[in-house]
Structures are given as structure tokens and as C-alpha cells.
């Protein structure tokens, strides 16, 4: 089980969290102008990398907040967690 460092509450076991998938996928500003192709990219296409990955978590059984994390998808080790809206700390971005 992963040990996840919630930026608001500190380290807690994974079962307190729900996964939110890939981070930093901004919802389009003007959805009505998007082509089907662009919608497909926003809704469905993912980087799914083997290695460093920026992802979202939500501390559902705790503070309830969404936040981001950088994790290595081979070792499952976290490089860091950071608040939604912040950029990842220097040097750890995928």
C-alpha cells in the first residue's frame, strides 16, 4: 500500500485516498469551439508513461482536498506532492 503525503494532513495510508488520474489537463476555455478531435484528446488520450508522472489524488477520507503528486510508475515511489494550481517543484517535473 502506498504512503501518500497529503499537503494538508501529512502522510496517510493509500486507502484514505482516491486516485484522480493524470494531472494538469486543463479544461478547455471555450468548449463550443473545440473539434471532435480536440475533445477526444481532452477526454480520453493520456500520456500513461513508464517513469515520472504527474497525477491527481483526493484525500476523500480525510480533508477532502484534491492535490497533485509526482510519482515514478515503475518503482511507485513519490518524488513529491503539491497543491492544485501550483507548478511542480523545480527539478522533479516529468
Amino acid at each position: 500500500m502506498l504512503l501518500i503525503d497529503c499537503p494538508y494532513c501529512g502522510p496517510r495510508p493509500e486507502i484514505e485516498f482516491r486516485y484522480g488520474g493524470e494531472a494538469h489537463l486543463a479544461r478547455p476555455h471555450d468548449p463550443s469551439t473545440l473539434s471532435d478531435e480536440e475533445w477526444a484528446s481532452f477526454l480520453y488520450r493520456r500520456s500513461n508513461p513508464k517513469g515520472r508522472f504527474a497525477e491527481r489524488w483526493r484525500h476523500v477520507h480525510g480533508c477532502g482536498q484534491f492535490f497533485n503528486a509526482i510519482r515514478d510508475t515503475v518503482s511507485d515511489k513519490f518524488a513529491c506532492t503539491y497543491k492544485t494550481g501550483d507548478a511542480p517543484p523545480d527539478g522533479v517535473a516529468p
Partner: peptide, 13 residues
């Protein structure tokens, strides 16, 4: 498991 991983192991829970 709920998270993306290539580890070929998963959580014991």
C-alpha cells in the same frame, strides 16, 4: 490497483 503503474506488483490490501 487504483493508480497507473508498471511495477508488476500491486498493493497487498
Amino acid at each position: 490497483d487504483q493508480y497507473i503503474s508498471y511495477s508488476q506488483t500491486g498493493g497487498l490490501h
